Amino acid sequence: MKLSFLRPLLEAAVVLLLVLGAARWVSGLFSKRTQVYQTTAARQLRLLFWPLLALGAGLSVLPAVAMGNQPASGFEWALTGGFVLFTLLLSGPALLLHLRYWTLNHDTTLVFQPADNRFEVYEAGLRLPFARRDLARIEGVTCRARRTFWAKYDYLRLHLVDGRVIVLTSLLTELEPLASFLRSVPTERRAVYWCWV
């Protein structure tokens, strides 16, 4: 078979993932839980797993049809194009949201320790100067399309008294505990089909 070299690579990747996962689990047993949230690769992979899997399934059909033993017919190309288009429609919105959220929060660090009443936001390593009393209102937007790949993408907009707006997205962490922590601030909650900021 032409692609016989892929099997050892895939086996090595699976073994590497299992070893890294086990090492992370063991180190998590002995480490103190961090209260600092950033856009980590693990969080991004958790959000992007199903969209990337769908996209990979759709795009994997193209080489099979293009490099087959016999030339593909027009009908086979139409079916392939339809399948690729379908998977793009499934995964495309989640990929766009992910890219948008990443551009908003890739330099953002959230320090959130509710037990110590600590809530700080840093942009590019610099602390944004505000206190809890400086929050005028909070806008919490969640996705109402629960059975889609982009359902876990939501955001909070913190409107400050001086007019500044701080956007915290689900790339940083789950936002519901943060919204509960700030429940004393007037909060407007909305559910939309697609949570574009």
Rank of each mutant, 00 (worst) to 15 (best):
G92S: 09
W102N: 06
E76P: 01
L104I: 14
L89T: 00
A64V: 15
T187M: 12
P177I: 05
R132Q: 11
S170Q: 10
V65S: 06
L88A: 13
F112S: 03
D134S: 11
C143V: 07
R189T: 12
F112L: 06
A131W: 01
D154N: 13
G81H: 06
V111I: 10
R133V: 06
S184Q: 15
G74D: 12
T103A: 11
S184L: 10
V165I: 12
R189Y: 12
T187Y: 03
D116K: 15
V192I: 08
A191K: 08
L126F: 02
R100Y: 05
L178K: 07
S170F: 09
T80Q: 12
T80M: 10
Q70T: 10
F119Q: 10
W150V: 02
L59R: 06
P93Q: 01
P114N: 06
V121R: 03
T187Q: 11
L96P: 00
L97T: 01
D162F: 05
F130K: 05
R157N: 05
Y155I: 06
L160Q: 06
P71T: 01
A64G: 04
A131E: 15
T148G: 04
P114V: 04
E139G: 02
R147F: 15
E123I: 03
S184A: 14
R133Q: 08
Y193A: 15
F83H: 08
R147L: 13
T103I: 04
R132H: 13
L99T: 13
V121I: 13
V185Y: 02
W194D: 02
D116S: 12
E188K: 06
Y122I: 03
A179Q: 09
D162P: 09
F86Q: 07
Y153S: 11
L79K: 09
D162T: 08
T169Q: 03
L126K: 15
A145K: 15
V111E: 03
L97Y: 06
T148W: 11
S170D: 08
E139P: 00
P129G: 09
K152L: 12
L89R: 14
R118V: 03
R157F: 00
V185Q: 08
L160P: 08
T80Y: 02
L104P: 05
F119T: 03
A145N: 15
F112Q: 01
L89N: 04
L90S: 01
T169A: 04
F112D: 04
L168K: 02
D162E: 06
V65F: 12
F75V: 11
